[in-house]
């Protein structure tokens, strides 16, 4: 893998990831993740659900970021994405970024998880634009007001809550575009997303539960083949955003919502 992509996958990437536990903190609070065995199960389930969805969305975003450099390609090859979407935002690349972002919203019923995804998307966008300037990242930034700056559009926009697109683009969308900006393929974007879906949570568990970091590293190594398989599957999805995986994890959804209401929170999510 190229060094540029290693930089993007690195946990020391200054994009705020260290403050997100991927559900491990509320799971630990609930007594559901307590030791290495329960952490391993948690990571495997996270990978198969949220990890797969994130990886597929990141791959789609990467693919679109590569093609959106040329608007002609967008119209010819991907304009069809909008036929089913009422022409929201026009048929340009920026309108399509909004559609892809809405695809993340639709797969993220938990408001707490949407907020966490947008916070991480904003942070990643900042570092990615500084590091690998790319028109796709500019397009994402141009339409990303913060949480409180409610996007006011037509009547339909007013029906939607502040979370839609407001608050910055979703993390997998930015991750895919950043991977493209760093010269990566959709398969590589999916790999970084799938990898991050377990490493961030594992690192949080080490900090929260005082688990042996060597044992946790070994548990991640055991998962490595599964991470690759999820990435391969995610990248092999057809180029139809509506059909991308939408595997839910009701437990993660509930934990994310409970987390926001707990008295003491060390992690954002």
């Amino acid at each position: 893998m190229d060094t540029r992509l290693l930089l993007l996958a690195d946990s020391r990437l200054p994009a705020g990831g260290h403050a997100h536990s991927g559900g491990v903190e509320p799971a630990a609070t609930a007594g559901a993740v307590t030791d290495l065995a329960s952490l391993s199960d948690f990571l495997a389930a996270r990978l198969s659900t949220a990890g797969l969805v994130t990886a597929a969305l990141a791959a789609a975003s990467c693919s679109f970021a590569h093609s959106s450099r040329d608007h002609a390609v967008v119209r010819a090859g991907l304009g069809g994405q909008l036929h089913d979407h009422g022409g929201e935002g026009g048929r340009d690349g920026e309108g399509l970024w909004r559609v892809l972002d809405a695809e993340v919203d639709a797969r993220t019923p938990s408001p707490a998880q949407r907020t966490a995804s947008r916070a991480q998307g904003r942070a990643l966008l900042r570092v990615a634009r500084t590091t690998w300037p790319h028109p796709a990242l500019d397009a994402l930034a141009a339409h990303s007001p913060r949480d409180h700056a409610v996007v006011r559009g037509g009547p339909r926009e007013q029906l939607h809550d502040h979370g839609r697109w407001g608050g910055g683009p979703h993390h997998p969308v930015v991750l895919g575009a950043a991977a493209a900006a760093a010269g990566g393929t959709p398969r590589q974007a999916a790999a970084i997303a799938a990898y991050g879906s377990v490493t961030g949570a594992a690192s949080a568990a080490v900090r929260l539960l005082g688990l042996d970091p060597l044992a946790v590293q070994q548990a991640l190594a055991v998962l490595a083949d599964d991470v690759d398989a999820v990435a391969a599957r995610a990248a092999a999805e057809p180029d139809d955003w509506a059909a991308l995986p939408a595997v839910s994890a009701p437990g993660l959804d509930l934990l994310a919502e409970l987390h926001l209401r707990s008295e003491v929170r060390l992690f954002e999510s």
């Binding site: 199960d41 948690f42 389930a45 639709a106 019923p109 437990g251």
Partner: peptide
């Protein structure tokens, strides 16, 4: 979809008991 925009895409998958039996899922 609502007015052409995706509103919810949600799948519950019971294939691997090791996955769906975990606290992250059911």
């Amino acid at each position: 979809t609502l007015a052409g925009l995706p509103l919810l895409r949600h799948e519950l998958r019971l294939d691997d008991p090791g996955v769906y039996g975990g606290v992250a899922v059911l």
